[in-house]
Amino acid sequence: MTVVVSGVGVVLPRARSAPELMAPAAPDAPPVEPKDLVGRKGLRYKDRATQLAYCAADAALRHAGLLDDGGGLRVPGRSVAVVASSNYGNLDTICRAIDTIAEHTAAAGSAMDLPNASSNVIASSVAIRFGLRGPNLMLCNGATSGLDAVHWAATLIRGGRVPRALVLGVEPDNASVRAFTGGARTIDGAAALVVESEESAAERGASAPAVLGDYVRGAGLGRCLERLAAATGDRPALWQLPEQWQLPEQRTAAVPDTLLAGVARHDLGEVFGLGSGALGVLQCAAAVGWFARGGAGPVYATAGTDADDASAGIALRGRAAA
């Protein structure tokens, strides 16, 4: 079964669309303000990660033609899965709540923090906001988490559980995350994809700018690239680089020059900040942006270096080239 990308949403300070991921705005762009994008309604008591996810979800669902003018879903709620990815999404809630308990006892805690103490609050909150009643997954899987989320969305579709899925990658920037990661500045934004079986996209008359190819995950970035090459039978025209997510200042040493020598490289983390759990989703969105700007040939999206527990990769092709 062919699985396509039929919608993209990008909500970053320096990029508000897939093509802008390849041509970002100035570095002094202001932070994303969710209430300006999706209105104030429903944002109260939601953590920053969930608010950012709402914005990206709204953009991707609209881009895919799945929302009507009033924001209602045009397809049955049961037909849409949600697969979200974030490593640091609810770290701020955990840190604030444990600080309160340590300083003032549990009696001083806020019951409104309870849902946010569960790491799946991003995926479930998005489902509730948009009425998405299909399978609902939250991946917190380290460096490769975003690409893994895309993989699980495709697996749910290929397994016949749903015809389409909303994939979200989000990482918030806040003092807790910076302290925990040793000072890293995350993207403080989100990206979303609608992935769909080719058949159901065609039935809806939806355009699909990219085709999802093979997914690989295993030890070693070099081996991961070899497996992608074997699966696609081709060399990529563009390589989305992994980031060394724990220590951004060491990022350059993580990807040897000998790998895919001569292939154009694109390092999203260098431009937008630590992508972490959102990286893979951002990479797929950037691939769609690259195709939209006239890029041809396969794009390899990869995450996880040899310093991580594993590397993952997905090959994408522009629709015209598929």
């Binding site: 609902n136 997954l137 899987n141 380290g142 988490s145 699980w152 990661t181 724990q246 527990d309 594993a310």
Partner: peptide, 26 residues
């Protein structure tokens, strides 16, 4: 370390597992 927030790092060390997925689904 942040790399131990998910379980893949420890599963790799203990079992050489490298296709690991931490699903945080309440």
């Amino acid at each position: 370390p942040a790399a131990r927030l998910h379980f893949g790092t420890a599963l790799r060390e203990a079992f050489r597992a490298d296709d690991t997925h931490t699903l945080s689904n309440a």
